[in-house]
Every structure is written in C-alpha cells, then in structure tokens.
C-alpha cells in the first residue's frame, strides 16, 4: 500500500511526541508558566533540524524519492493566523494537546480524549459553517 509508509513515519513522530512528553498535560502547563526548559528545548531543536535539512535539500537541488522536484511549503498571511492561533492557544492550555497529541493521547490509553477529538472535529466543522461571517 502506497500510503503505509506515512503510517510508519507517523508512528516514529508519535513515539517522539509521547516519549518526549510533549503530549503531557503537565508539561504543557509547565511550558505556559515558563517553569522548565524541557518543552522549549524540544521546539528549539526540532525547528533548526527542520530548517537546516530543508536548506540542505534546497542547496543540493534534491529530488523526492520518486524523482520529482521538491516543493517547499509556503504559508500566506491572513488575519485568521492571529485570531485563530490565539483561540487555538486557549484550547491547548485546556486540553494540554494540540492536534497531534490528541491522537497520541488516545493511543497512550486516555480513551476519554476521543471526546476531545470529536469536539475538535466539531470546532473545525463549526468554523467551516460560519467562515463566511468571520474576518479572513
């Protein structure tokens, strides 16, 4: 199956999130209160690792494993970047989970997080429903 390799990468990603305790509600409270370096250490090593490897791939004109040209992600500004992210931050402080950790917390055995995931789906759906009334 063509997509199963992504499941494998996802598994390693989920393992790193979990073993790194980035899915821990305790760690997220600690992070937002600036009481430990741990979570900041994760961000401050993850981002440069991504940035450095992307730079190297671009520099060497690397191609995908299937020989296509690489398309580096681009993000455009819209007001939702600020408004939406602030709202997301409130939710992150409550659940102790951004979207990735929601899945990992369920896997780790916190079955009640299925409810949070369903609520997140309801949130996404509600945004879609009322998008045209909100400033972009």
């Amino acid at each position: 199956m063509k997509n199963s390799k992504y499941a494998l990468v996802g598994m390693v990603f989920g393992l790193a999130l979990t073993k790194g305790e980035a899915i821990s509600w305790y760690r997220i409270q600690e992070m937002f209160r600036f009481e430990s370096f741990h979570m900041f250490g994760i961000f401050m090593t993850a981002i440069p690792t991504g940035a450095l490897t992307l730079w190297l791939l671009r520099k060497t004109n690397a191609k995908t494993f299937e020989g296509e040209a690489l398309v580096v992600p681009q993000k455009k500004y819209h007001h939702g970047i600020i408004i939406g992210s602030l709202i997301f931050g409130f939710g992150w402080a409550l659940t102790g989970a951004c979207p990735g950790p929601l899945y990992a917390q369920i896997g780790a055995g916190f079955s009640v997080v299925i409810v949070s995931l369903l609520a997140a789906l309801a949130g996404t759906w509600t945004f879609g429903r009322f998008q045209r009334f909100l400033p972009d």
Partner: peptide
C-alpha cells in the same frame, strides 16, 4: 478545549 483547538487551528 477540544472545540477551541479544532476551531482555532
């Protein structure tokens, strides 16, 4: 919390 995560992101 979950709702705000889904809506905001």
């Amino acid at each position: 919390g979950g709702f705000l995560v889904g809506f905001g992101t």
